[in-house]
Design a protein around this nucleic acid. Sequence first.
DNA 1: ACCTGAACACCGTTCAAGT
DNA 2: ACCTGAACACCGTTCAAGT
Lengths: 237, 237
Amino acid sequence: MTTQPSETVETRRPLNKERVLKAAIDLADREGIRALTMRRLAEELGVEAMSLYYHVSNKEALLDGVVDMIVGEINSELATIDVPRPEDDWKRAMRMRILTAREMMLRHRWAPNVIEERTTISPQMVLYFDGLIEIFHRGGLSYDLAHHAMHALGSRALGFTQELFEPDEQAEPDVSSDAMLETMSDHVPYLVAMLNDITHDEPETTLGWCDDQTEFLFGLDLILDGLERRGEEADGA
Amino acid sequence: MTTQPSETVETRRPLNKERVLKAAIDLADREGIRALTMRRLAEELGVEAMSLYYHVSNKEALLDGVVDMIVGEINSELATIDVPRPEDDWKRAMRMRILTAREMMLRHRWAPNVIEERTTISPQMVLYFDGLIEIFHRGGLSYDLAHHAMHALGSRALGFTQELFEPDEQAEPDVSSDAMLETMSDHVPYLVAMLNDITHDEPETTLGWCDDQTEFLFGLDLILDGLERRGEEADGA
DNA sequence: ACCTGAACACCGTTCAAGT
DNA sequence: ACCTGAACACCGTTCAAGT
């Protein structure tokens, strides 16, 4: 008869798939994706682990659902914002869409890795991609070019890139990398030179300390500009 | 005194870290990354699971080592091939390097996901990146632009992109996606139109059936061309 | 319709011990 | 120096059973 610690009385109503997925996202946000186990999630919901299987057929399905819900939230948000008509400025329309998706990814830092591990296709993701293709098409790009564009964007279409040298989520200061570069400087002279050159103004900067947002935009605009030019070349020919 | 089934007599010499890592890569190649558990790997080597901990401090370290070994192989291979001097044609030099890395990734399809999950920096990876920066620098790009370039390339620098809609490794034919698109065609008209347009010549083609290599090259060249132009703009100003 | 208990076959890892 | 046995604290999941 006692209420579970993390449960208020009003949430003690019967579970459903939506509440399970919401709780899973919440748990991953708070404690990282490693903490998202069936047993731990059940505990969070004040229920036995096996109860989850009534609402979700297994853990893979849980993760599929989680991804679908997050992309669904992106789609909902996109419906509320004002974007230019693609016929007028498809690059800006595309940019705004992708940056909206990116905000969601930054709120759920674990999501990119989960998304990339999925093998099934999320219906919400299909809807999202349809929206991107619409922009390309109405912007005047051929479907052929739009197809190349989707591949060229890759995960950037969803607002994230994999930073290969990004340190851990809540990383320790990691002074070792400074010392390491020092000792390696004979072996990696160009890398060291580049870092020295970059860190001129911002003294705090080192490997992985870069401004992600700036770099994301640089890469995104590089691709969008390139696509625009290929479109013009095709029109000219 | 009996020899383990998967062991020839000559490999029954004492273990070392290198042999452990090699066996791990082998196992992942043959049976997928999910099969790479400490216990299964030990079995493969004809040894108890706990013996592995003598050579590698834990599973994370094992995966770190595996990644480092694979990138190391890329580096070795790069030392043997003829590339143009960056001063003469940095784009081609870069392209060849990256495509060499890509060949390795295609031989170890599970590697991209493992690489992206690592949080520690692999020494061999640092060497590899130094080589890329060398090409940009000797090709005449500023270190600032080279830095942007590394971010813009992202995982493409290592020869892979995450195909968001790629089906499973050894995927079943998956006729469902055809049927699914049929029923969804009202909701995703642009996606359907794009696919119809593309599949004109190659009747087999559908979502995820695209020619990865062609698309990889399209995206790579789009970025390299864009970088070249930004470099010229900077020179001109 | 919704949830549980007991059980199974797996994980990674520790620690003290063997040769 | 190299390997092992026994044990621990976890996983996901099944299945028959409870209300």
